[in-house]
Design a protein around this nucleic acid. Sequence first.
DNA 1: TCTTTTTGTCAATTATATCATACATTTTGT
DNA 2: ACAAAATGTATGATATAATTGACAAAAAGA
Lengths: 69, 69
Amino acid sequence: MSKNLKLKSSRAAKDMSQKDLADATGVTRQTINAIEKGDYNPSIKLCVSICKVLGKTLDQLFWEEDEDE
Amino acid sequence: MSKNLKLKSSRAAKDMSQKDLADATGVTRQTINAIEKGDYNPSIKLCVSICKVLGKTLDQLFWEEDEDE
DNA sequence: TCTTTTTGTCAATTATATCATACATTTTGT
DNA sequence: ACAAAATGTATGATATAATTGACAAAAAGA
């Protein structure tokens, strides 16, 4: 998987640390870190939760036009 | 969790069975069934895969305005 | 009506997302 | 320079997504 820079920058735009976002979404800091890094394939529920905290939609943060998988 | 009727109807609109969609996305029929029924909290990767097969976006199929979790 | 397909569901197993704890490095603030 | 915060990683444990196999009921086609 590839890094999620859209997530990283959206979080930065809200001036939130990984821990802030983790607390706001009810997961651990390591989970947010792994998602940004591209190590995890998060659940849709967590993605929606992250989107709502950051004021973005799923398409804005988690849609990748050129995916191979 | 609640049923995903948007997924169910989008699949029907493409005249695909649960098995058809399962084959197209590389998972089993039971997995598609569980997602439509709301038993599973699928991964974002699988959601994207489903969206691409059905010609929809994440927001169209997996965004729920009123979520409690 | 009969046959086939589709759906719903169950149990056991496997794969993996996430947690909890911990530590090193980098960045930020003073 | 120093202290504090933030990030990057690593490990073992746990929860659950997903698999495989199977069977019954419902829907669709002949």
